[in-house]
């Protein structure tokens, strides 16, 4: 891996970009120094491109002109440290050429072109390089875990709203504190646990559907794997998936389960009417990202209902599930089952 350019870029002066520069972030003609500290691509900032209306004090060291307001909030909730850049830059500087790392690097490079290719920012060299640096740093930090497909969509969705170093930190925090690491380990132990919880909740909350799935031999990993590994970021269009991420930062896996249940509940009638396993899967697993626009229509309770991912996230957020039970199910499945 050629780590040299990163070093040079990392030490450029920390010039604060002017607001009008912020809006033109995809323009490649900007000086290289700025490319390293690229700006969020989202449309969350105010018209001047500033994130100035943040409620925390002016001196908040996290407040970066490179992140939008939402991402700034996420950083606070997740607990991104104030000196987030130091470790990130350090890791980028660290050369690593073990066989294991190089294999991961190959996979990362392979996936760069295949991460939100329809989004102009990620089809540009600048965006891809940023994403690559973040994924490389995350991989170096967690070399034992390595890079696993799915991380690319998560990192890109964060990077869309914030700076590289903050994305890097949020990835670390998601992997550790929110236990996403378990999802990506060999044999996917975390995924299996989440499937177990979803199965349990399904049986309690939507018993007819649970039974139907059993009869049709639909196991939850069939539809949960993508959702769980990417926190819906691969499926839901990039411009809307921030709602999911924001709520996940706030409520953790509880929000994830609530959203899954909400989707299943709204699809229940259709799914119960589906006569084969394949029909069920084609309803529940739209194939291409574009199909997910149609998918939202399927989730409407009535034809007139106005529904968006934003609204769905809000409904899910305010839903109630017994988190005590859920956390017990996650930690001690046997004793939880006895108890309830």
């Amino acid at each position: 891996m050629s780590s040299k350019p990163y070093i040079e870029l990392a030490y450029v002066k920390k010039a604060k970009p002017k607001p009008n520069e912020l809006r033109d972030a995809t323009v490649d003609s900007r000086p290289k120094s700025f490319q390293f500290r690229h700006v969020a691509q989202c449309f969350c900032s105010d018209t001047n491109g500033n994130s100035s209306k943040i409620t925390c004090s002016e001196s908040c060291p996290l407040k970066s002109p490179l992140s939008c307001r939402k991402a700034h909030k996420w950083c606070h909730i997740a607990g991104v440290p104030h000196n987030s850049e130091a470790l990130y830059v350090e890791l980028l500087k660290t050369p690593l050429s073990t066989r294991k790392y190089l294999t991961h690097l190959d996979q990362i490079e392979m996936d760069l072109l295949r991460t939100f290719p329809d989004v102009p920012y990620f089809s540009s060299e600048v965006g891809r390089e940023s994403l690559k640096r973040v994924l490389c740093a995350v991989t170096k930090y967690n070399i034992k875990l390595g890079y696993v497909q799915g991380m690319n969509f998560l990192a890109a969705s964060l990077l869309y709203h914030t700076s590289e170093s903050q994305t890097f930190w949020m990835m670390l925090i998601l992997l550790d504190k929110y236990e996403l690491k378990e999802n990506f380990k060999p044999d996917f132990p975390g995924l299996m646990r989440h499937c177990y919880v979803v199965d349990f909740l399904l049986e309690r909350r939507l018993p007819r559907l649970g039974q139907h799935f059993k009869e049709m031999m639909i196991t939850s990993p069939m539809f949960l794997t993508d959702w769980c590994l990417t926190l819906f970021t691969r499926q839901i269009p990039l411009r809307y998936n921030y709602k999911i991420l924001g709520n996940f930062f706030k409520q953790g896996w509880g929000f994830f389960y609530k959203l899954v249940l909400l989707i299943l509940r709204r699809l229940e009638t259709r799914l119960l009417a589906a006569a084969t396993r394949e029909d069920i899967l084609s309803i529940i697993k739209p194939f291409q990202p574009g199909d997910w626009k149609e998918f939202v229509k399927l989730l409407k309770n009535s034809r007139l209902e106005k529904l968006s991912w934003k609204k769905l996230a809000k409904i899910a957020k305010n839903d109630n599930i017994d988190m005590e039970l859920v956390s017990e199910l996650l930690e001690r499945p046997e004793s939880a089952l006895e108890k309830y």
């Binding site: 497909q149 069939m222 794997t225 691969r234 697993k285 990202p289």
Partner: peptide, 13 residues
């Protein structure tokens, strides 16, 4: 030309 990478499995008929 720009297909997204697949996590897990897709289903088509």
């Amino acid at each position: 030309e720009k297909e997204q990478s697949t996590t897990n499995a897709n289903f088509l008929e």
